[in-house]
Each structure stands twice: as structure tokens, then as C-alpha cells.
Amino acid sequence: MSFSCDIAIIGAGMAGASLAAALVAHEVSGRILMLEGEDRPGYHATGRSAAFWHETYGGPGVQPLSQASGPALWDLGVLHKRRGLTLARKGQEAELHAFVARFAALGVRISVADRAVITHYIPGLSPDYVLGALEEDCCDIDVAALHQHYLAEARQGGVELLCDARVAGVVRGGEGWALTLADGRSISARLIVNAAGAWADQLAVMAGAAPLGITPYRRTMIQARVDPAPSDSLPLVLDLDESFYFKPESGRLWLTPHDETPTPPCDAAPEEIDVALGIDRLEKIVDWQVERIEHRWAGLRSFAPDRLPVYGFDADVPGFFWCAGQGGFGIQTAPAGSDLAARLLLGLEVGAVSPEAYRPGRFLRED
């Protein structure tokens, strides 16, 4: 069986689905196929995210995309107010003040919270923590609803989704591409979009493009029953060292040791040592008792070397477009990131967010 299309988007997680929907919104002409290697979209990263919209997450280079995405996420009804609180230990006071000043200058609603304020939000907090950065606009994201919205928008706009469509071969010929799937199906496409997440560099090599150093990292999540049960008003709690974060979820606590273990692209599974590390860190942060670990899982977060996303045509291989490297912030930046990628793909004027920091060509080495 063979297919022919104008644009083949490889990957139907948040990156691929949101880009497909953005192309529909821009009324692109031609046939678009979205190829998903698994039996359903969003299996590896999108479906395993404990996502939130948190403007300081990802750093100043990501913040413009997060800020620009906020209104769209609100309009879609997928945000739920949470607050965010980044903690600082004794000796980190100057670092915390600099952190707040840096993001306040970018327009983030953020302020320094003293010990009395942070213990109001986090009862039983260790005396090691003396200050916090409070973000009033931080929100939880309904990841499944957002992903389904984009899939539905793409489908209604005529984008065709093929699941169990793992790409096994990519050959450029003439003005387009010939793709071979693992089950023997073939696809011809004028353009291909690399939205393959953890597999982005592997796909690039198949297409004859230089890999950019996009590396998958395993992240462990734990759902625990704790005493006292976390209040719904508990913020998303992080620390300046990025050694943990936790938040309440339906009377339970979702917790991660913020692990980033480089791993080949795979169906990630949690390691017991990382689960134990998460519990150990929690017990050093608060005096709560962990009564039971009810669930544990792991997902992959893929980063380029500078930890910024990659949007744009490959510098050396015509017709090969990158939409990858979104790391752990691909969901909170999906509206702005997908719109930017769609405009670059279609050659349209870009909006308020400049693409320069995200272009694939930034990794070119000068001899």
C-alpha cells in the first residue's frame, strides 16, 4: 500500500499534533499525513506528562513561547490555577533574588516570598528553606484534553493520521521524499517534518541530515499517599537547584526527583533507585509521612544541546523541517511553538516570537 502527500509529519505527540492543527488554521493547501509509530498518539512523552504552565520553566529562552501560549491555553479551557513556588535554601538568598529579578524583567508576575509565606503554603517545611519565588499565574494543564483538541482540529481540517506507522527508511529523490514504513507501506512526500521526539536525531540521520545532538532523558514520576494529605491549595513546589518538584493531584502527591538520565529512545520505565531518591528528597523537604507509593512511571524529555526547541528547515537538507527538542516544556509552549513552526514551514511572516534562537542552523560549526 502506498500514499502520496504534500507534507508528512513524523510523530503525533504534542509537537506533531499541534503543528498539524496550526497548519490547518493557516489554511494550508495539499494533503497532510501524520505518521505515528505507536498504536496511538502521545504514548511516550505527551501521555506521561505531569504538565503545568509555569513561565520560569525552561529559562529565559523558553519564556517568550510560554508567555505567548498562555492566552490560547486559557481560551481552550485546559488551564487550572495552581500557583508556583520555587524554594531557596540558606545561602541561596542572592541567587533567589536574581532569579526573581530576571523573570520579572520579562513580564512574569513573580515575587520574593519570605519564610512566613512559604511555610503558610507548605506546612512542615524544613528550616533549611528560607525564601521562595512565588508565581501567581502558574497553572496545571489538562494534557490529554489539549492533545485531543489538536488531534481533533487536525482531523477536521483533513489531516490523516496513520498509527503503527514506524518509519524504517527515508530517501530523497527529485523534489521530494520516499518513506518506507516498517510494515512495508510506502509514502511519497514533498516535505517531511521531524516531530519524532526522542527519535528526532535518528530520523535526521535516515534522511541524510546531520544530527543536532537532541538527547532523550528519562524523568521519573511518583504518585504517593502522604500524611497529611496535600491540600488542593498547595502550589507546584520546586527548588532553585532543580532537584525536585511536587504538586497535589486528587488528594495524592505527584513527586519527581527531577532526574535526567540520558537514555536511548525507548519505552521508558522507572528505576527503583530514582523512586527511592524521590521519596528521600521529599522526606528532607517536609515532615510528611509517605504512607504508600500508589503509582510510578517514567517518560522521555528530549533536549537540544542548548536546551531550546528546534523549529525550522534543516540548513543543509532541502525539504526536511525540524519541530523537535521541546524537552519538558513542549506542552506549555504548544500554541506559540506550533504557530511559529507552521509559519516557518509555510514561509509566512512570523508573529511576536522571534524564531532566531530556535533555528536548526544555530548548531552549524564554523571551520
Rank of each mutant, 00 (worst) to 15 (best):
L125Y: 06
D128P: 10
R359Q: 06
E153V: 08
V117A: 10
M206P: 04
P123T: 11
D164Q: 09
P355I: 02
D227N: 14
G16K: 12
Q92S: 05
H147L: 01
K90Q: 13
A116M: 08
L134S: 07
R365G: 14
P127R: 14
A195W: 08
E356F: 11
A154H: 12
L238F: 10
G169L: 06
L23S: 01
R362F: 00
E260W: 11
W199K: 00
P228L: 02
S66Y: 01
W322G: 09
A341M: 00
G84P: 07
P309Y: 08
P235Y: 07
A189F: 01
W74V: 05
A68F: 00
G213V: 15
L308D: 01
S69I: 12
Y57R: 13
P262H: 11
L179T: 04
V112N: 10
S338Q: 11
H44L: 07
A152W: 09
D316W: 13
P270Y: 02
A204D: 02
G208M: 04
A165L: 01
A144Q: 13
V108N: 04
A189K: 05
W53S: 06
Y311W: 07
G107F: 05
A50S: 11
G157P: 08
Y43C: 14
A22L: 03
H295P: 07
G337R: 01
V193Y: 03
A341P: 09
E55I: 09
S186F: 15
E260T: 14
L106V: 04
H258S: 15
D128L: 10
T180D: 13
K81Q: 08
V28H: 14
L181R: 04
R296L: 05
Y311K: 11
E93V: 06
L161S: 06
S250C: 11
I214Y: 09
G208K: 04
R362I: 07
F313L: 15
D137Y: 10
V143E: 12
G197L: 02
E349D: 14
F99T: 01
D142W: 10
R301P: 00
F99Q: 02
A15V: 07
A12R: 00
S188K: 06
Q289T: 14
K247Y: 07
A210P: 09
V167Y: 06
A72I: 00
D239A: 10
R31I: 01
L282N: 11
R301M: 12
G58Y: 04
L76M: 09
Y121F: 15
A88W: 08
R40Q: 13
A144T: 04
C138G: 07
E27A: 09
R109G: 02
L106E: 03
Y57K: 15
E242T: 11
D142N: 14
Q223D: 13
S4L: 02
A198R: 03
A8W: 04
A268D: 08
R89S: 13
R155T: 15
V317M: 08
A268K: 06
W177R: 04
G347T: 00
E27I: 02
Y150K: 01
A204Q: 07
V117T: 15
T56F: 01
A133C: 09
T256E: 03
Q223F: 15
G70T: 11
G16L: 05
E135I: 11
I331T: 07
L87W: 08
L96R: 03
S186T: 15
Y121M: 12
G42K: 09
A12M: 00
A182V: 02
R40L: 10
H97T: 12
